[in-house]
C-alpha cells in the first residue's frame, strides 16, 4: 500500500513559468544573472565621471584586450601543446602555465595605459586608470562571462553556477582595478623604487591567484561558494593595499605639482 502511494504521483508542473515555452532557464533568472555580471561595469562607467571622456578611449583598451588575448593564444598553442591524456598533475601544470602566460596581460594593460592614454596626459589620473579598467574589463566580461551565461541559459536546469559567475565577474573587477592601478604606479617616473618589491609581489599575487585557488580546491575541495569567498578575500586584501599605494602616490604627486 505504501508503495502504491509512494509510486503514485509525481506531479509534473504544467507550465512552470516561462521556462516551458522558452525551453531555457527563466528569462527572469537570466536577466538577474546578466545584471549581476554587467551592471557594475556600467555603473562604474556612468557614475565615475568617465562618461565625459570620449568613449573611443575605452574602445582602444578593448582592442588592446583582444590583441593581447590573440597573442596569448598563439603563444599557448605553439609553445604549450595540450597533451591528449589529461591527468590531475597535467591539470596543475596547465593552470600554472596559464597563470604564467597571464603575465602577458600585464604587458597589454601596461601598453594600453601608457600608449593609448598618452594623448590625454592632462586628464585626471583617476580617469586614465578607470578608462583602461572599463575598456579592458567590459571586453573581458563579455568574452568570458556573458557568452557562457548565454550558452548556459539554453539549458533548463537551475544551477547556482550562473549566479556565481555574476559574482565572480564583480570580484574580477576588483582584481583588474588593482592591477591597473599598480601598473600605472609602475609606469610613473616618480615612482619610489623602494616600493618596487611590494608592488611586484602584489602584481604577482594578483596574477597567480588562480593557481593558489586551484591548489586550494585541489587539496581541500571546498564548495564553490567557499572558493568564491576566498577569491573575494584575496581580491579585497590586494585591492586595499593597491588602493593605499595608489592614493598615496597620486595625492603625493598632486602635492608635488
Amino acid at each position: 500500500m505504501r508503495q502504491i502511494i509512494r509510486a503514485g504521483v509525481l506531479r509534473m508542473r504544467k507550465s512552470l513559468t516561462l521556462a516551458a515555452e522558452l525551453g531555457s532557464m527563466t528569462l527572469f533568472h537570466f536577466a538577474n544573472c546578466l545584471a549581476l555580471t554587467v551592471a557594475p561595469y556600467f555603473i562604474l562607467y556612468r557614475f565615475s565621471g568617465l562618461n565625459e571622456v570620449p568613449w573611443s578611449k575605452c574602445v582602444k583598451s578593448a582592442v588592446g584586450y583582444v590583441a593581447t588575448q590573440l597573442v596569448k593564444m598563439l603563444l599557448l598553442a605553439t609553445a604549450f601543446p595540450v597533451s591528449a591524456v589529461q591527468t590531475e598533475r597535467d591539470d596543475l601544470i596547465r593552470v600554472a602555465l596559464t597563470c604564467t602566460v597571464d603575465v602577458i596581460d600585464l604587458l597589454g594593460i601596461y601598453v594600453c595605459l601608457t600608449k593609448f592614454s598618452a594623448r590625454y596626459e592632462n586628464s585626471a589620473v583617476k580617469t586614465k586608470v578607470l578608462s583602461t579598467v572599463v575598456g579592458w574589463g567590459v571586453t573581458e566580461v563579455v568574452a568570458t562571462r556573458v557568452v557562457p551565461l548565454w550558452v548556459e541559459a539554453r539549458g533548463v536546469e537551475f544551477s547556482w553556477n550562473s549566479l556565481f559567475t555574476g559574482l565572480d565577474a564583480n570580484i574580477s573587477l576588483v582584481y583588474l582595478a588593482s592591477t591597473v592601478a599598480l601598473l600605472w604606479m609602475w609606469s610613473r617616473p616618480d615612482f619610489n623604487q623602494t616600493l618596487l618589491p611590494l608592488l611586484l609581489s602584489l602584481l604577482l599575487s594578483l596574477c597567480y591567484s588562480p593557481l593558489f585557488l586551484y591548489l586550494l580546491s585541489f587539496s581541500f575541495s571546498p564548495t564553490p561558494s567557499l572558493l568564491l569567498l576566498t577569491r573575494l578575500g584575496v581580491g579585497l586584501v590586494t585591492g586595499f593595499l593597491s588602493l593605499l599605494l595608489f592614493h598615496g602616490m597620486s595625492n603625493g604627486k598632486t602635492k608635488v605639482q
Binding site: 619610489n192 623602494t194 598615496g248 602616490m249 603625493g252
Partner: peptide
C-alpha cells in the same frame, strides 16, 4: 603611511 611620505619626497 610612511610610504606616502617617501613618495611625496621623491
Amino acid at each position: 603611511l610612511p610610504l606616502k611620505v617617501k613618495s611625496s619626497k621623491s
